[in-house]
Amino acid sequence: MVDSGKINWHEDMFSVLRSQNITLVGHVPDAGHTPLIRLCERQNDMDVVTLTTEEEGVGLLSGAWAGGRKGVLLMQSSGVGNCINALALPQICRIPFFTIVSMRGEWGEFIPWQVPMGQATPSVLGAMDVKVFRADRQEDVGATVDAAANFSFNTRQSSAVLLSQKMIGAKQFKEG
């Protein structure tokens, strides 16, 4: 994990969720999202929903928006592929689907199996009409998440923030 002074980008993302009144958090967990998930779990007015597959998050957030509640889906890049057909729902209904994606398979990756979906993530999102924002530096995370949330909820279009693996830090595995 890169340490760049006093920036806590997890807390920056959490502050944006609070200021955007995003109270429903669907996720299939990833180490890059764990601090944010923990912050959200401490809030009485937030619901954190552990999903069995990322595509559930698309339907969950769409139904919540129809009921007047804003949400975000937290997932790893491998989960983006699971969402493809589900993304027809927000696209055809102009529902503002909003997701924060922790990237794998792009920078210093250890596991080759993470590479195919990690590399395909931006084009898959683009193919399903999800606008892609990217945060490569810790100091940009809060502003990027805020901009993407504004884009989605103000213009009724879907967006994804990709948290780059270079910023998160590539997980290294050791046997034993």
């Binding site: 429903l24 339907g59 969950l60 769409s62 139904g63 919540a64 928006w65 009921g67």
Partner: peptide, 9 residues
Amino acid sequence: AFALGLAMA
């Protein structure tokens, strides 16, 4: 999933 999100909202 849509029905769950709606019910939670």
